[in-house]
């Protein structure tokens, strides 16, 4: 517990306040000030340089009618669902490693799991971007070699009529609007690159032996053990980070910027709210409007956080 200090002694020991000055200055200037500034400028038609005019709620009215913005929210929600799904392989792998009988192999795999983490995210991203390349990309080569390409073409022409897979044309993963979302889904396969596996493993290792023995006595099989012992534990860990993951996906746009470019790729199919904000500010120079988009995103996320803190946390 911090030691209570009276006003008198506080005045005499004013030098103690110096300890927080650097922190306060940094946070105040580079975190708080931009935030406040952003709120202010969302009501203006700022172009980032000269004095601007306050235009009241014009930006927000425009945002309300901005179809690109609405579509971007739709896209990003789909991406959230994708990311939730992408958590599954990590869980699976963690359970598999946890159940190995050899301690040496467990340690070896745990060490191995660190490797994807230390390759810089950007490198992974660009290598994947090369996979998507129509002519030289690995994806298309593999599809051709394994014959899957023909399967996809047949499915396309005879059953689903997507209109994206053609017999002699390399698949345009990042150039066909309809393929953008699937590409964003496939990206990162098999989706075990983050710290998830190690954290789940650590949690699994804290499960006491006795629970397994009791389950065995109850006649619970392999899958049952997963369902009733391991999964609940992992799910509690997941729940703790769920909100962070959702918020990160909602406000993220780096991936889309680098894979698809500033306009979100062909027909803007990969446009997410963050990217639209970036686009309006740094490409179109409409800083004021960008701020208002930022505010809308901010409000959305804040609401989610409050709901999480009030209802989800309390329920636990």
């Amino acid at each position: 517990m911090p030691h209570l200090v009276s006003r008198q002694r506080g005045l005499r020991e004013w030098r103690l306040y110096l300890l927080i000055v650097p922190s306060l200055l940094l946070v105040g200037t580079f975190v708080l000030l931009p935030a406040v500034n952003g709120i202010y400028h969302s009501f203006s038609d700022w172009d980032g340089t000269r004095a601007q005019q306050l235009v009241g709620l014009d930006n927000f009215r425009r945002a309300f009618q901005d179809t690109i913005l609405w579509n971007s929210f739709e896209t990003v929600s789909i991406l959230v669902v994708f990311n939730l799904f992408k958590m599954i392989p990590s869980i699976l792998l963690a359970v598999l490693i946890h159940r190995l009988r050899s301690d040496r192999w467990q340690y070896a795999y745990r060490a191995l799991m660190v490797v994807p983490m230390i390759i810089p995210g950007l490198v992974t991203l660009f290598v994947w971007k090369s996979f998507f390349d129509p002519n030289l990309g690995l994806l298309n080569r593999v599809l051709d070699l394994t014959g899957l390409k023909w399967a996809l073409v047949s499915l396309d022409q005879r059953v689903f009529h997507w209109g994206v897979f053609f017999p002699h044309v390399p698949v345009g993963w990042l150039t066909q609007p309809e393929l953008i979302l699937p590409s964003l889904f496939i990206w990162g396969f098999p989706w075990i690159g983050t710290v998830g596996v190690l954290i789940y493993l650590a949690g699994l290792q804290s499960i006491s032996q006795e629970i397994y023995e009791a389950a065995e006595l109850d006649g619970v099989g392999s899958f049952g053990k997963f369902l009733y012992i391991e999964l609940p534990l992992i799910l509690t860990q997941v729940r703790l980070n769920l909100l962070l993951l959702i918020i990160a996906t909602l406000q993220g746009y780096g991936l889309q910027l680098l894979l698809l470019g500033e306009s979100g790729g062909p027909a803007g199919k990969g446009m997410v709210p963050g990217l639209w904000m970036y686009n309006r500010a740094f490409i179109a120079g409409e800083f004021g409007y960008a701020c208002s988009i930022g505010m809308i995103l901010f409000g959305f996320i804040l609401a989610l956080t409050i709901v999480n803190n009030r209802y989800v946390r309390v329920a636990k």
């Binding site: 506080g10 946070v27 975190v31 960008a290």
Partner: peptide
């Protein structure tokens, strides 16, 4: 220590933690 104004400053700190910083990049620039 809990100096005068400590509590106020700490609440401000905590509040800033909730701040999604996505919108900051534009004014920051």
């Amino acid at each position: 220590y809990q100096m005068p104004f400590s509590r106020m400053l700490w609440s401000a700190f905590l509040a800033l933690m909730l701040l999604p910083s996505v919108a900051n990049i534009v004014p920051l620039f």
